[in-house]
Simulated assay, not measured.
Amino acid sequence: MEEASMLHLLSLHYTGSEQAVEPFIRDHVAYLERHHKEGTFLVSGQTVPASIGGAIIARGVDRLAIERIAAADPFVTNGVATYSITTITPGRTHPELASLLGPGD
């Protein structure tokens, strides 16, 4: 399957309190904005409750690349969060989302 068709669900988990992540929020937001601008991140946001962490839906890169991207998050590099990553090969796609996933969907 082409990399453009792969989706990745990144679940961000705080390793400590919400207060522990506060010094790194500005850099984390810049990290998110960069990857949204590049088109790799389609959706990002906090979980409910927010004290757990956040989630990202990404596309356009293979598993190894998304692991490198996740490892570069300032929350991760500063030891205040970790990611779990689930890679999805879409079998069915809503027509309105098909253009985001690349050719062949």
Results as ranks from 00 to 15, higher is better:
1 M>D: 08
2 E>D: 03
3 E>L: 09
4 A>F: 01
4 A>G: 02
4 A>R: 06
6 M>F: 04
6 M>P: 08
9 L>W: 00
10 L>R: 08
11 S>R: 15
12 L>I: 07
13 H>K: 05
13 H>T: 03
14 Y>G: 09
14 Y>F: 14
16 G>W: 05
18 E>M: 15
20 A>W: 01
21 V>Q: 11
23 P>W: 01
24 F>C: 05
24 F>E: 05
24 F>K: 07
25 I>H: 03
26 R>K: 08
27 D>E: 15
28 H>Y: 00
28 H>E: 00
29 V>R: 12
32 L>R: 10
34 R>T: 09
35 H>R: 09
36 H>C: 08
36 H>G: 06
40 T>K: 06
42 L>D: 02
45 G>R: 06
45 G>M: 04
46 Q>A: 10
46 Q>W: 04
46 Q>R: 12
46 Q>M: 05
46 Q>T: 04
47 T>W: 08
48 V>M: 12
51 S>V: 04
51 S>M: 04
52 I>F: 06
55 A>E: 03
57 I>Q: 07
57 I>P: 10
57 I>E: 07
61 V>C: 11
61 V>T: 06
61 V>E: 10
62 D>T: 00
63 R>Q: 12
65 A>V: 04
66 I>M: 12
66 I>K: 09
67 E>A: 14
70 A>S: 07
72 A>L: 11
77 T>G: 11
78 N>P: 13
79 G>R: 11
79 G>M: 12
80 V>D: 10
81 A>Y: 06
81 A>S: 11
86 T>W: 13
89 T>R: 13
90 P>C: 14
94 H>T: 13
94 H>V: 13
96 E>I: 14
99 S>M: 13
100 L>N: 13
101 L>F: 14
102 G>Q: 10
103 P>V: 03
103 P>H: 06
105 D>Y: 13
